[in-house]
Amino acid sequence: MLLCQITDLHVTRPGALACARVDTARSLRRAIAAINRLSPRPDAVIATGDLIDTSHPSEYEVLRACLSELTVPLYLCVGNHDHREALRAAFPDHAYLRTGSEFVQYRVDLGALTVLVLDTQDPPNAGGHLCDARLTWLDEQLQACAGRPTLVAMHHPPFDTGIEFMDGLGLSARGRAGFARVVSRHRHVERVICGHLHRSIQASVAGAPEVMASTCVSTAHQITLGLAPGAPGSIALEPPGFALHLWQPGAGVRTHLAYVGPYDGPYTFDGESVS
């Protein structure tokens, strides 16, 4: 089972640039073209939130047009930049978005692997939260899929990263504690995949150290790596990319970071071009 994760697409309305610099729709189309060329072909793509940038009505229209170019099944997750009802309206054919709940969260079984998509949105705050209702849903779903290897997808990561200004916009302390309490009871959680940070970061979940969580680079711009206390928040035009989560029986989940070009190669170790 090969899952592709894209995140923090931040698609803008036509003619607008994210952070006054980044053509995010163009960047997303480049990422999609790279994903469509992959061999082996991913079994599914999971987009872990911040699909649009400002909630302008036309942004979801642009997003849908971009994502229509994908040639593999797609599953969507909300981030703090998203709007639940506008997302549902823009993707009426994605039945999993409409479960009768306020929250955009659902279960999908992909072969032997179960994916649980969790809603961490806490409007109007940029930070995330997991209320009792969402944690109860997660606990019930994990009980229902006991014995199946399970991956949890959510926007805000359940750990501090050391990038101070982003940690100030992270998942609430109560949400982190509740999440750890739930997942620690279920030994079949193999990975938690998240967005929000625009960087590739891995950490165990505090309170559930046997559970590994990770974030992913954006298909557009990245958050500057600022680990010094008080480092100002900023973006860097580092290479965009996506993650590939490979699950195999007996081996669990292994994650590969893939960059979106252009870049040279591949070459043999003798410097010859590989056709």
Score class of each variant (00 low, 15 high):
His83Leu: 11
His83Gln: 09
His83Ala: 14
Glu85Ala: 08
Arg88Cys: 01
Ala90Tyr: 02
Ala90Cys: 02
Phe91Ile: 03
Asp93Thr: 03
His94Trp: 07
His94Ser: 06
His94Pro: 00
Arg98Phe: 12
Arg98Glu: 10
Thr99Glu: 15
Thr99Ser: 14
Ser101Thr: 09
Glu102Trp: 15
Glu102Ser: 12
Phe103Pro: 00
Val104Asn: 11
Tyr106Val: 01
Tyr106Pro: 00
Arg107Leu: 14
Arg107Ile: 03
Asp109Gly: 10
Gly111His: 05
Gly111Trp: 06
Gly111Arg: 03
Leu113Arg: 04
Leu113Tyr: 02
Leu113Met: 10
Thr114Asn: 13
Val115Gln: 11
Leu116Met: 09
Val117Lys: 05
Thr120Phe: 13
Thr120Val: 07
Gln121Cys: 13
Asp122His: 14
Pro123His: 10
Asn125Ser: 14
Asn125Ala: 15
Asn125Gly: 11
Ala126Asn: 13
His129Asn: 09
Leu130Ser: 07
Ala133Gln: 14
Leu135Phe: 07
Glu140Cys: 01
Glu140Thr: 01
Leu142Met: 05
Leu142Pro: 04
Ala144Ile: 01
Ala144Glu: 12
Ala144Lys: 03
Gly147Lys: 06
Arg148Thr: 06
Arg148Phe: 09
Pro149Thr: 05
Thr150Ser: 14
Leu151Trp: 05
His155Trp: 13
His155Leu: 11
His155Asp: 07
His156Ala: 06
Pro157Val: 10
Pro157Asn: 08
Phe159Pro: 04
Asp160Arg: 13
Thr161Asp: 11
Ile163Trp: 14
Glu164Phe: 06
Phe165Ile: 14
Met166His: 12
Asp167Cys: 06
Asp167Phe: 03
Asp167Glu: 09
Gly168Lys: 15
Leu169Val: 09
